[in-house]
Design a protein around this nucleic acid. Structure first.
Length: 440
RNA sequence: GUCCCCAUCGUCUAGCCCGGUUAGGACACCACCCUUUCACGGUGAGAACAGGGGUUCGAAUCCCCUUGGGGACGCCA
């Protein structure tokens, strides 16, 4: 199905890609996919001083990582190109001639100004309803150095690219009266404007900016977050499916998404809820997918510990991760959670040690385990459990007495996977060696 | 300062348009259960209609004001 809907995401390559941009891109993408329309990526690189090719690449990478594919754009083609504003000079010249022909422009101090109409403009915002605003003074459309300004290029491109819906942040609502004046001056059809509520920083006043904690998409990528989780979380920031569904694959969100379902009020970013959403995706991921993401994350981390883990036997690695997936909330926890599997030089958590030592004679329990397990069968959780059970019975103690001390001895911590699975995966040789080396 | 937008638990929200709900869900927090630890999971608790006026038999829901929050006022985008 296709429709006439054409939406665009129009970022500037002047900084890191942040959550607010991702949300704007996502909502445009969702609307395009919902309607069967086109999602256009247009790069607004008219500020030569602040543009940076690295940031342009980051826009592509971030959108791809989020799974937001574009139908038209700098590297995707399309019949309305070029999609880099820096390459559209001739188009702007043509439109500028039309604008000059209306008699509404004049030069002052070397810059070209646009004369406002003085009329109150009514913006029929698809989210907010009718909004009245009047421009107070003429504004610059071409700088004295000859380069066109945002308001001009943005409006011209939306006209030239036949954009039907302008979905952007509410910070642009005040600009929209300028844009409406320009669209009218060009005699072009008015796009439907939809101004999204802003994302506010988690703590303190004001909207979220690139400098705020947790504001960069890149961070979540580096931390091994599932992009599906970020998408899902972002979709729920200002939009709701109206029933209580929260976890939804992007295709489902796209199917259910519509502009009337978007809320008007600003929203506060909540990293905890994002983390929870991420956990849901992590728990639901196929084991192979989890494994691949862990490996990719370890590669990205690149530390000695990460490299050591990556160099471990792949079947061993896989078994460790099978135990780990149900226990962690984020990929970034995995390295610390599994460190002791990959080295005998693991650190001992002093708090865990004190806690376990306070409960009983850990050294004795470990010694008993070491003796009792010498002839045990490590091939299954059950066989290990049976062995530990008989050790416990022989000493008139409980499983719990052995489990805690036994875990501390082989892992240096009191948290981790199921005790018997831990021993099975570590393997008899490592377990016996570590039990023997244990000193309370 | 001027203009514009917004207003339900701490947070994201359902309910609002088309007045009658014990105002529902999720995250977070707390308690308990599950349990060999830690998580997960389960159960439960606390937690909101910003305030004031109207309209109405009846207002979270409609109207106005106040307050609060946010945004814009660039030869940035």
């Amino acid at each position: 199905m296709s429709s006439h809907v054409r939406v665009r995401f129009a970022p500037s390559p002047t900084g890191f890609f942040h959550i607010g941009s991702a949300r704007t891109a996502l909502f445009n993408w969702l609307y395009a996919r919902h309607t069967g329309g086109a999602f256009i990526l247009r790069i607004e690189d008219t500020d030569e001083a602040r543009n940076n090719p690295a940031y342009l690449q980051l826009i592509y990478d971030s959108l791809r990582w989020l799974g937001l594919n574009w139908d038209e754009g700098p590297d995707a083609g399309g019949s309305f190109g070029p999609y880099l504003q820096s390459q559209r000079g001739a188009i702007y010249q043509d439109y500028l001639e039309k604008l000059k022909a209306t008699g509404r422009t004049y030069e002052k101090e070397g810059a070209l100004f646009f004369r406002i109409s003085g009329e109150t403009q009514v913006i029929n915002d698809a989210i907010r309803g009718p909004v009245e605003r009047k421009e107070e003074k003429d504004f610059v459309v071409v700088r004295s150095n000859g380069t066109p300004i945002f308001h001009l290029t943005n409006v011209i491109d939306d006209i030239a690219m036949e954009v039907t819906h302008v979905i952007r942040g509410e910070d642009h609502l005040s600009n929209t009266s300028k844009h409406v004046e320009l669209v009218k001056a060009f005699g072009a059809p008015m796009p439907i404007y939809a101004h999204l509520p802003l994302i506010l920083k988690q703590n303190g006043p004001g909207k979220m900016s690139k400098r705020d904690q947790g504001a960069l998409v890149e961070d979540y990528r580096k931390r091994g977050y599932f992009p599906e989780a970020l998408d899902n979380f972002l979709a729920l920031l200002g939009w709701s499916p109206k029933d209580d569904t929260e976890k939804m694959p992007l295709e489902e969100v796209a199917r259910r998404f519509d502009i009337p379902g978007i809320n008007k009020s600003n929203v506060r970013f909540d990293e905890k809820k994002l983390a929870h959403m991420n956990m849901l995706y992590l728990l639901g991921a196929p084991a192979d997918d989890f494994l691949a993401r862990v490996r990719a994350h370890f590669q990205l981390v690149g530390s000695a510990e990460a490299t050591r883990a990556l160099n471990a036997d792949s079947a061993y690695f896989r078994e460790i991760m099978a135990l780990t997936q149900p226990k962690v909330k984020t990929i970034e926890e995995v390295l610390a959670y599994t460190g002791y599997f990959f080295t005998d030089e693991f650190p001992v958590d002093p708090k865990a040690r004190d806690k376990i030592l306070a409960k009983g004679d850990a050294a004795a329990r470990v010694r008993e385990l070491s003796e009792g397990l010498a002839s045990a069968d490590f091939s299954s959780d059950q066989s290990i459990e049976q062995a530990v059970q008989s050790i416990a019975s022989a000493h008139n103690l409980t499983l719990s007495d052995y489990v805690h001390a036994g875990r501390l001895a082989v892992s240096g911590t009191n948290v981790g996977p199921s005790f018997y699975s831990l021993y099975r995966v570590l393997g008899k040789e490592r377990v016996m060696q570590r039990l023997g080396a244990f000193r309370a």
